[in-house]
Design a protein around this nucleic acid. Structure first.
Lengths: 224, 224
DNA sequence: TGTACATCAGTGAACGCGCGTTCACTGATGTAC
DNA sequence: TGTACATCAGTGAACGCGCGTTCACTGATGTAC
């Protein structure tokens, strides 16, 4: 074995296994045997299992957040002064994700599934790590969303952003399984790009929905 | 201790811990000590940890699916012959969930969070169990969605249903945490009912979005 | 150029721990005769 | 009414196992003099 592709082999194996099975369902023994590497190598190179999880995220999030920053820079420049629209903002994010240099062909779906898991599995250490390292592009995205939806109250906007995150994280995080079902049931193949192209209009429409609380038979129409 | 509230105490404790931390992060020792019950009692009454997980789901899904069936019956009767609208269908589901008799005040959010986890954590046995036991109301809901959105192609509808499920499962599954943030940041209290009241218009708008693929700078506008 | 030492990637085996599960047992209650 | 037995909920202690981590060690490469 060459000198230190060991680190990369561990990261590759861990990334795929984590995406497949979640963090606590993936043992170091699975990772090291998939990576064809000694069990102790993980602790030698990374220090702990948690630190390995952080490294897996850092490897794709660091370049992604850089790409995203420049995409937002470009967008704001093109709009000189005026705030970008919701569609433009969502597409800037989507494009950045799709255009990221991929290590493998299933790169994006692994990447999305990991993000979904980060939100979903209750790994306190990971959430803390992500907040520390990547709060900046996240806040910027939130600011752009805010400027693109001035008609929404803060509370409405807050919840609709959660709905968007949910639809995205959930769909992308199970997209391999979903795509399989779709291919079997409907005989259609779907790329991540195509899913994104379907998702963005859905999200944009949801974000901009009128709050018509004309509800057939609900006890009391709640706050508008 | 009385004769067999043991079973219920185990179910109560398990339900709450699973919702908080996920399945594999919750040990039988946590459950039995929270329930103030002997460790061996879980295997005595349920047979295994997996069977306990199934029992937790069955306890709330069985009455819920009954409620849902009658809600759909009512709805279809009221519409006599014509297919119910998307809004009516979504509200029938929402109302059934909200109206379910609750064991505790945080009943619904636990219930929603468990459903989210079921989708999200890769517990093969659980998915199999749910498909076996509750496929009927699920298929019926899918059929109603189909009839309420005749303008959509099968593929579009498929993906948009995934987006809806994602937004719902994700939001509801972390709704306690989200609500806390909201109360701290914006000083607003939000009930599950209010979240639902915000979610339904978002979903309906997303489902009925026009597929305007007028995209600023995406390499190739994908299939419509 | 040759020797001594330091550094570093990697290894094999073991560590202690918490896990789900099992097993022999208890003690209360119900049933048969 | 009294005795023998069966049933059943629950218990305490232990089982074997897989986990993340540690530790003493190896062997190759680089550096100092």
């Amino acid at each position: 074995m060459a000198q230190s592709d060991t680190v990369d082999r561990i990261l590759d194996a861990a990334e795929e296994l984590f995406a497949d099975r979640g963090f606590s369902e993936t043992s170091l023994r699975m990772i090291t045997s998939k990576a064809k590497v000694n069990l102790a190598a993980v602790n030698y190179h990374f220090g702990s299992k948690n630190a390995l999880i952080h490294a897996v995220f850092a490897r794709f999030l660091t370049p992604f957040s850089a790409t995203l920053e420049t995409a937002f820079d470009d967008l704001e420049e093109r709009c000189d002064g005026k705030p970008p629209t919701l569609n433009q903002t969502l597409w800037a994010l989507t494009e950045s994700a799709v255009r990221m240099p991929q290590r493998t062909d299933k790169g994006i779906s692994i990447f999305m599934r990991l993000l979904g898991l980060a939100y979903t599995q209750s790994q306190g250490h990971l959430r803390k790590f992500l907040e520390q390292e990547y709060s900046e592009p996240f806040s910027r995205f939130m600011r752009l969303l805010k400027e693109a939806t001035p008609q929404l109250s803060a509370v409405d906007r807050y919840w609709r952003i959660q709905f968007m995150l949910g639809a995205t994280a959930f769909t992308m995080s199970s997209s391999d399984a979903l795509r399989d079902i779709l291919e079997n049931k409907l005989g259609v193949e779907t790329s991540v790009q195509e899913i994104a192209a379907r998702l963005v209009p859905f999200l944009a429409a949801g974000m901009q929905a009128e709050d018509t609380m004309l509800v057939p038979s609900f006890e009391q129409a709640p706050v508008a």
